[in-house]
Amino acid sequence: MYDPWSIDYLHIALRLILSVILGGIIGFEREQSSHAAGLRTHILVCLGSTLVMLLSMYGFSDFAKLDNVRLDPARLAAQVISGIGFLGAGTILYTGKTITGLTTAASLWVVAAIGLANGAGFYFAAALACLLSLISLFVLNQVEKKYFRAKKLRHFKLVALDRPSLIGQISGVLGKEGNTIQKLSVEEVSTEEEEQLLIHFTVRLSKDAKIADTVEDLKHLSGVRSVSCD
Rank of each mutant, 00 (worst) to 15 (best):
L66Y: 13
D230A: 14
D8F: 09
D67H: 09
S136Q: 02
D217C: 00
D217V: 02
V20M: 08
K183Y: 10
T202W: 07
G48S: 01
R40A: 01
R15D: 08
Q79C: 00
Q182Y: 11
I114T: 08
L197Q: 13
S185T: 14
A129V: 13
T98S: 05
V139N: 07
V52W: 03
Y147E: 01
G23A: 03
L128I: 15
S228W: 06
S6R: 08
K207F: 07
N68S: 12
S33T: 10
V173C: 14
T41P: 06
S206M: 06
L221F: 02
F156S: 10
D62S: 13
A120N: 09
L140E: 05
I114G: 05
K145I: 04
V143T: 04
S226V: 10
L134W: 07
D3S: 13
R70N: 07
F28P: 00
I25T: 04
I114K: 07
V80Q: 00
I199R: 03
G121N: 04
V45F: 03
V159Q: 15
A105H: 02
E193D: 04
I81A: 06
L47H: 04
G172V: 01
R163F: 10
L132I: 10
L132Q: 00
S171T: 10
L71F: 00
E144R: 07
L76Q: 04
I17A: 10
R70K: 10
G38T: 00
P4A: 05
S133F: 02
S61N: 15
S171E: 08
E177M: 12
A64Y: 05
F201Q: 07
S190C: 10
T103P: 03
E194H: 13
L16A: 08
E193Y: 02
N68A: 13
V69C: 10
V215H: 10
Y2G: 09
S226L: 12
N68F: 13
L218R: 09
M1D: 15
A129L: 11
M53Q: 03
E144F: 06
I7M: 15
S82Q: 03
K97P: 00
I21V: 15
L153S: 12
H200D: 15
F122M: 15
I81L: 06
I181N: 08
W109S: 07
A36H: 12
A36Y: 10
G48T: 00
G24N: 03
T95P: 01
F138D: 12
I43T: 00
K146D: 09
D213A: 12
I7D: 14
E195M: 03
Y9C: 02
H42E: 04
L87H: 08
L102A: 08
G23V: 02
L134G: 07
V69H: 11
I21D: 02
I114M: 10
L66P: 01
H11M: 14
L174I: 15
N179M: 11
D213H: 14
L184R: 06
